[in-house]
């Protein structure tokens, strides 16, 4: 089930990724135009977004972040999640690797136009923040009866 969200079936997606990466290298991320609110690759937290006809599902990967420290807001169709993860260093320890994110973060996600800011739900489990935003009625596909 989860595979449907993470495994883009066409290899076309991979080609786009490769092309994007190559272009990033060539033009130093300034060309072609990227979404004004997009984050650079590898930014914390990682985000997956999916949609069903009824709602939009946003998954933020926030391991080790206290759910109470999360600040989630939505304005028009831009969802913003900010918070912090402060890792206290162990005393008298020699660090060999520090790959994990440390500090404050904020990530904005542009949702489809029909997102309803009045109907948002958020849950946090095992380090994943799952936000469900309902879509407006009018945007749902409707069956039209032939008379």
């Amino acid at each position: 089930m989860f595979g449907s969200l993470t495994n883009f079936e066409s290899s076309l997606y991979d080609q786009f990724r490769r092309m994007e990466r190559e272009l990033d290298e060539l033009f130093g991320q300034t060309w072609p135009a990227t979404s004004i609110r997009s984050a650079s690759r590898g930014a914390f937290p990682a985000v997956n977004v999916g949609a069903t006809p009824d709602n939009i599902q946003v998954y933020l990967f926030v391991p080790g972040v206290d759910p109470k420290s999360l600040d989630i807001s939505i304005q028009e169709n831009v969802l913003t999640v900010s918070g912090q993860r402060s890792e206290s260093s162990q005393e008298n320890a020699r660090y060999y690797r520090r790959e994990r994110f440390n500090g404050e973060f904020s990530r904005a996600i542009a949702l489809p136009e029909d997102a309803d800011p009045a109907r948002v739900e958020a849950r946090c489990r095992d380090g994943i923040l799952h936000i469900t935003v309902q879509r407006r009625e009018a945007a749902k596909p409707r069956q039209i009866q032939v008379k």
Binding site: M1, F2, S4, L5, T6, F8, R41, A43, A46, V47, N48, V49, G50, A51, T52, P53, N55, I56, Q57, F61, P112
Partner: peptide
């Protein structure tokens, strides 16, 4: 993940 979800973006 709900049934019938379409991916829009995935890190």
């Amino acid at each position: 993940v709900p049934e019938g979800i379409q991916p829009l973006f995935a890190d």
